[in-house]
């Protein structure tokens, strides 16, 4: 069942639920302003050509953040990665 891993480790196409956001200050506020809060469902929809930043799908929109920013976010996975199209 639910396994908590850093957001960075999600594969493209994988879905997860945010468990914890550890960022403080400006980064923390930006992350929350965009709706990345505990309980939010996210899906990794892509990575930039150099594997960083990462593109996430939240409810109804896409946002990107750098890998080192994603490290502050822990997610809970309960599903196998969807096969990539």
């Amino acid at each position: 069942m639910g396994k908590t891993i850093p957001l960075r480790q999600l594969a493209v196409g994988q879905r997860a639920r945010i468990a914890k956001v550890d960022a403080h200050g400006e980064l923390g506020r930006r992350i929350r302003d965009m709706g990345l809060i505990p309980g939010a469902e996210v899906e990794v929809v892509g990575r930039a050509p150099l594997r960083d930043p990462v593109a996430l799908r939240l409810k109804g929109f896409t946002l990107s953040l750098r890998n080192n920013e994603a490290d502050f976010i822990a997610v809970e996975t309960d599903a196998q990665p969807r096969p990539q199209e």
Binding site: I31, A55, T62, S64
Partner: peptide, 12 residues
Amino acid sequence: GESTPFVMELPP
């Protein structure tokens, strides 16, 4: 100063 967080919307 720290780099400004990249957290950015990718609009459709």
